[in-house]
């Protein structure tokens, strides 16, 4: 028996919003520790890794490991039926071929349940090697989203260049070029609003705007985003979801032909 209850369905709605542009279907692996999802997008350019820890749920029970292949379009339809203040409970029997979502309004006056067929997804599972990153940049997630959106107007790629002076985001295209430089916040009063740069070695890498924009769909999950970069390895864009886990996006850099 698997049962996981969240007091706020909005977290699950936001998680789905954050992955549905990249993935059409995905496997949710549930065990004692919580729910994990790891999948590459169709073109194998990016990888999404989601963790929702068991202790972040209002109630969590997982007697045996459960693997649930879900169509994310169908799951989105179902979660649209939940009010933001509703609690949501996901339930599945061992070896079941369906999952049930139960939504309860705050005053318990409305209870709805939606049963969804599970899919047999034979997806390969990739191991993510431990990596020491040369640069990590933390900044307000809304600022990152704004920059990606602004720069996307000019070009298809964004060059991220991190040096001891700060971090620079650049792009160029038919109409011209654009650069945004961010320096580390001088005095940190509010951690959520700070830009914090840690650099061992300078790194410059180029990434596809479209994917960075997909990742920023996670903005509402976290006030801060962390970018981790090293030469010739995928960029990691991490949003920590308060009290429950994280969503990490890995993006392969563009390379000289």
């Amino acid at each position: 028996m698997f049962e996981a209850r969240l007091l706020k369905s909005s977290i699950l709605k936001k998680v789905l919003e954050a992955i549905k542009d990249l993935l059409t279907q995905a496997t949710f692996d549930c065990d004692d520790n919580g729910i994990q999802l790891q999948a590459m997008d169709n073109s194998h350019v990016a990888l999404v890794s989601l963790l929702l820890r068991a202790d972040g749920f209002d109630k969590y029970r997982c007697d045996r490991n459960v693997t649930m292949g879900m169509n994310l379009g169908s799951m989105t339809k179902i979660l649209k039926c939940a009010g933001d203040k509703d609690t949501v409970t996901m339930k599945a029997q061992d070896n079941a071929d369906t999952v049930t979502f139960v939504f309860e309004s705050p005053n318990q006056e409305k209870v709805s349940d939606y049963e969804m067929k599970l899919m047999n997804l034979d997806l390969e599972h990739l191991g993510i090697p431990e990596t020491e990153y040369s640069c990590t940049i933390r900044m307000p997630s809304a600022e990152f989203a704004r920059m990606c959106r602004d720069l996307s107007q000019f070009g298809e790629s964004i060059v991220i260049s991190c040096t001891k002076e700060g971090v620079k985001f650049s792009t160029s295209g038919d109409i011209g070029s654009a650069n945004i430089k961010l320096a580390q916040t001088a005095s940190i009063d509010k951690e959520d609003e700070a830009v914090i740069i840690e650099m061992d070695e300078p790194v410059t890498l180029t990434f596809a705007c479209q994917y960075l924009n997909y990742f920023t769909k996670a903005t509402s999950l976290s006030p801060q985003v962390q970018l981790s970069m090293s030469a010739d390895v995928p960029l990691v864009v991490e949003y920590r979801i308060p009290d429950i886990g994280h969503i990490r996006y890995y993006l392969a850099p563009k390379i000289e032909e």
């Binding site: 590459m40 194998h44 990739l126 993510i128 995928p234 890995y250 563009k254």
Partner: peptide, 13 residues
């Protein structure tokens, strides 16, 4: 510039 695949960076488990 060409887009590399992410698959080659990870190991299949």
């Amino acid at each position: 510039m060409s887009q590399s695949s992410i698959r080659s960076f990870f190991t299949v488990t």
